[in-house]
């Protein structure tokens, strides 16, 4: 397993580049971009097309990064689907309905994400229950709490928030007309998580955790705290996306996060991260997110039936996992040959 981890980074030969899991993802990205560039023409290759898929990629990308870390560590987080609306609803109720300053509502929303993340992480670390089940449970619970409290406090499932200009400018505006400020936040998340996974010692811990939890613990890695930290990061990122949506569209709805559950997993997998843990890279996740978003948005520029988009994504997903599977087999073959 460790052969596809980061220890490989130090070496560099053509064989290693071909063997890296994100190489396949990158080929997929180039292919998809070329395909839609041909169909979509200059509009897709120009600012409208770029901004279109980048705006989508920023939102799903912020969620996909910590989901990717969790998957590298061998865990899943389904609850992001209800943390997104829970956070935007909390902020909208605190600042929109009760009229407190926008930053307070935003802190409240982010706090909800951290809290849900902590509960997920604590349960995953302290029990033997698979994380898929735990986070399905918290997803349902948070969904119920959001709906129940929204109706109880506001009497409606749609709450609006008009924020002060500075907050709006930082979190919910468009740069150069079309580019949502969210993509700069995404870039920030990419930088931080790249540092975490590939530069700081925590990265090695995460790979070790996904490779074999038992030996990771024996090696002195604080596995419980690490798990809790990763889930809090994932809750925070989902809550942050909820806040970005709220400030861009000035309105919070109870049901709006469900598509993120599978979309974020798809981005991560297209980016070459194995669900089985122990391998993956931030570059791969970013490539996967870009590929996913280009297909999703390119379809509207291409003149094809928009419903064809999901066929495209499904096939791409299969191609990604199967080629990774092939790459992995090749890797194992090459490394056994070498030794």
């Amino acid at each position: 397993m460790s052969t596809t981890g980061r220890d490989q980074k130090t070496q560099s030969s053509l064989g290693n580049i071909v063997r890296r899991p994100e190489t396949g993802s990158f080929v997929g990205l180039v292919f998809v971009f070329t395909f839609f560039a041909i169909l979509g023409g200059p509009i897709f290759v120009g600012a409208p097309g770029w901004s279109s898929w980048l705006n989508i990629a920023a939102e799903v990308g912020i969620v996909a990064l910590p989901i990717g870390l969790l998957m590298i560590a061998g865990e899943l987080d389904i609850s992001v689907g209800s943390v997104i609306p829970a956070s935007s609803m909390t902020a909208a109720i605190v600042s929109g309905h009760f009229g407190l300053a926008a930053p307070i509502g935003i802190l409240g929303g982010l706090g909800v994400g951290l809290l849900v993340g902590f509960i997920n992480g604590y349960l995953v670390a302290k029990t033997k229950i698979p994380s898929l089940i735990i986070t399905i449970g918290t997803m349902f619970a948070v969904m119920g709490l959001t709906l129940g409290f929204a109706v109880l406090l506001v009497g409606s499932t749609s709450v609006s928030l008009v924020a002060d200009p500075l907050t709006k400018k930082l979190l919910g505006t468009f740069v150069g007309g079309m580019f949502n400020v969210s993509m700069f936040w995404w870039a920030g998340f990419v930088a931080i998580i790249f540092y975490l996974l590939h530069i700081s010692p925590i990265g090695n811990w995460i790979f070790a955790l996904g490779g074999d939890r038992e030996s990771a613990r024996n090696a002195g890695i604080p596995t419980a705290n690490l798990t809790i930290g990763l889930y809090m990061l994932s809750g925070f990122a989902a809550a942050f996306v909820g806040i970005l949506q709220l400030l861009t569209y000035t309105s919070a709805q109870v049901a709006s996060g469900q598509p993120f559950i599978f979309n974020s997993i798809m981005c991560v997998v297209i980016g070459g991260v194995l669900l089985t843990g122990g391998a993956g890279s931030v570059v791969g996740i970013v490539i996967g997110t870009a590929t996913f978003s280009i297909v999703n948005q390119g379809i509207f520029f291409s003149g094809l039936d928009p419903n064809m988009g999901s066929i495209f994504i499904g096939v791409l997903l299969l191609a990604a996992v199967l080629s990774n599977d092939g790459f992995r087999a090749l890797t194992i073959k090459l490394s056994t040959k070498k030794s």
Binding site: S52, N55, I56, Q253, N296
Partner: peptide, 13 residues
């Protein structure tokens, strides 16, 4: 229900 996705679809139109 996906405002971002719908906004980008409308933008393309």
């Amino acid at each position: 229900g996906d405002v971002t996705g719908t906004a980008e679809a409308l933008k393309a139109e």
